[in-house]
Amino acid sequence: MSQVPAELKYNDSHEWVRLEADGTVTVGITAHAQEALGDVVFVETPEVGRELSAGSSAGVVESVKAASDIYSPIDGAVLATNPALEGEPELVNSDPYGEGWMFRLQPANPAQINDMLDAAAYSDLIGA
């Protein structure tokens, strides 16, 4: 069964977010999502500085099997993207909640995170 860490928040398009101590938000895709995609071969992350709105396309994950859009779970400006994914896209498979993170946001409205799914609700969604 896929891991669903209790301290993260989720959305139904299978991204996770983590609220960091400095108020920024890290975004990635879930273990369930990477498992469904299979081996990841390219990750296209958003440009640093771009303003994303919740639900807007923020990038693409390409696996051997399919291309899948990544959506921004909340409104915010892109502060950083994961530089390791350029050379090691497989980190999304091996460590989706850690080294496979995708981008970091300065949230425009941190309260939006409260409206996302908690681990229990996301587990129900994926039947875990």
Binding site: G38, D39, V41, V64, K65, N93
Partner: peptide, 8 residues
């Protein structure tokens, strides 16, 4: 089976 862990 589509794969046994990693297609690559």
């Amino acid at each position: 089976p589509i794969h046994y862990g990693s297609q690559l």
